[in-house]
Nucleic acid binder design. Structure first.
Lengths: 131, 131
DNA sequence: CTAGTTGCAAAGAGTTTGCATGGCG
DNA sequence: CGCCATGCAAACTCTTTGCAACTAG
């Protein structure tokens, strides 16, 4: 959809690919890129394009109304489901065996076709449980 | 947390229990209860209490920024995961066998403890796929 | 040069909050 | 009667949009 590679778009893409799987708010992105010079409207417009292209996903922290974005343009991200720790906020990639099995089971017993791109499972990761 | 059972709170609870598993926006709740007389602020304040009590869950329609609420105070809702159809918006209860297996697998291979209350899986239901 | 992009500021949408009034217990 | 909850309106926050200026190709 975008036609020109402006310096703002380049800075944003660089930033995002360095922060893959991290949950980023529009505000944080703008702040972190302030040295590069990008307005909040450009952040929103570009984010919106990237979302349509499927390179970014919108994620919500459960229990909060804040909206985050995550860069998910890697091959690995297309194959598995994602786990989000409610304590530390980290994203984990679900074991691909388990993912496959889950998807098959759901297709069979519930006749439901999971959308990997928009599903995120919430819970607590091992590290946080041990604390 | 709430101390008094006001007529607004009663109307809201009645309304919610009749619409369990439906995705409701604050706006829709207010509109549907307009005949009972409840202000949007009362809706928000009560919703917020119910959320803290765990009787309501916040759900997002993937791809939209709209926020919905769902009454999930039934026994059945505590035992299984929920599936949300991206086409028709309906909520389905995941087969409890599959749920159990998934949770066990995740605990084993990914060492991740799923939070059933805040996880919703997105996809497309059989009915919508057949269309 | 020309159309896509940006920044700014204003407009919107959704949600929260302060305060006086009203009603539950 | 006392305190909690409500309604209203104002305040806020986040996001979107219109428009003139800028810039990538």
């Amino acid at each position: 959809m975008p036609k020109y590679m402006t310096k703002q778009r380049k800075a944003l893409l660089d930033y995002l690919s360095c922060h893959a799987d991290e949950k980023l708010s529009a505000k944080k992105i703008e702040a972190d890129l302030s040295s590069e010079g990008i307005s909040i409207s450009a952040v929103y417009r570009n984010i919106s394009d990237l979302e349509k292209e499927g390179k970014i996903r919108r994620v919500n922290q459960s229990g909060s109304r804040e909206v985050f974005y995550q860069y998910t343009d890697g091959a690995h991200c297309k194959e598995c489901l994602h786990l989000s720790c409610e304590k530390c906020g980290k994203t984990y990639h679900m074991n691909s065996e388990v993912t496959k099995m889950l998807i098959e089971n759901l297709a069979k017993s519930d006749e439901f076709a999971i959308d990997k791109a928009s599903t995120v499972l919430y819970g607590v990761c091992r590290e946080c449980r041990e604390k």
